[in-house]
């Protein structure tokens, strides 16, 4: 496999400005295939903005972002499985209807996989979303996202706001459904919880990539855990 096909995402001079706020500043970034990558950085430093540009939900002010060599569009959206930090499902909908929806729209969606995970969670298929707790709704959404056989999984704060047991479940779900040919981009500031599953980390500060390195590099070269290294470089 050559380098070109190994690249899933490539951002060049990517910039996003909201009014007078510079959220992403001439960012250059490459996301390779086959890695679990942590997108780390303090709140308000451009993580979600970057992710939303990858998902095609935000239009860059300047620069470019390519997914599989294509700008965000139909082709990229059919290969990206995106979990936003909010619930995007209609509250009145039944779980089974949402499964049918994903089944219809995404060719790579595995209904069998989704049903198995929902069974394990004891979520009734005929339950309406509004009857489920916030945590369960988030898990349902994660199950839907992870039941796809996508090239790139983008998970924005998947473990924020859930209890430790739910965190374990979410991380287990991510790992057990991970296809080694794909990549997972995981945005969070709860580093300790996810550090063990990461291959690489991308540190974001002031809308720019501060560093991109493997977890091994951090441990070997700096003799620190990712969490400790994060605390050091982002010390106030």
């Amino acid at each position: 496999m050559n380098m070109q096909t190994n690249i899933l995402v490539e951002a060049r001079e990517l910039t996003k400005i909201y009014g007078k706020t510079l959220a992403v500043n001439q960012m250059n970034l490459v996301i390779p295939r086959g890695k679990i990558i942590g997108l780390l950085g303090p709140n308000g430093n451009g993580k979600t903005t970057l992710i939303k540009m990858m998902a095609g939900l935000l239009t860059p002010t300047s620069g470019s972002i390519l997914i599989h060599g294509y700008p965000p569009g139909v082709a990229s959206k059919s290969r990206i499985s995106y979990l936003p930090e909010r619930t995007y499902l209609q509250h009145g909908t039944k779980v089974c209807d949402i499964i049918h929806f994903f089944e219809d729209f995404y060719e790579d969606f595995s209904t069998k996989k989704a049903r198995e995970m929902l069974d394990a969670l004891q979520v009734p298929l005929d339950a309406r979303l509004k009857t489920l707790s916030k945590g369960t709704k988030e898990k349902v959404q994660l199950i839907l996202v992870m039941s796809r056989d996508a090239d790139l999984f983008i998970l924005d704060e998947p473990i924020a706001g859930v209890d430790p047991a739910a965190r374990d479940y979410i991380l287990k779900t991510i790992l057990s459904n991970y296809n080694p040919a794909a990549s997972i981009l995981l945005s969070t500031h709860l580093i300790t919880d996810i550090e063990n599953i990461l291959d690489e980390v991308i540190f974001i500060q002031n809308g720019q990539v501060l560093a991109q390195m493997t977890v091994e590099q951090i441990r070997e070269e700096h003799g620190q855990s990712v969490d400790a290294y994060f605390r050091r470089i982002f010390a106030c």
Binding site: G56, K77, P84, T87, Y88, L89
Partner: peptide
């Protein structure tokens, strides 16, 4: 709004 996170990430023009 929030539902747009699903609508606009569907593989549709």
């Amino acid at each position: 709004t929030d539902e747009g996170y699903l609508t606009n990430t569907l593989p549709a023009d």
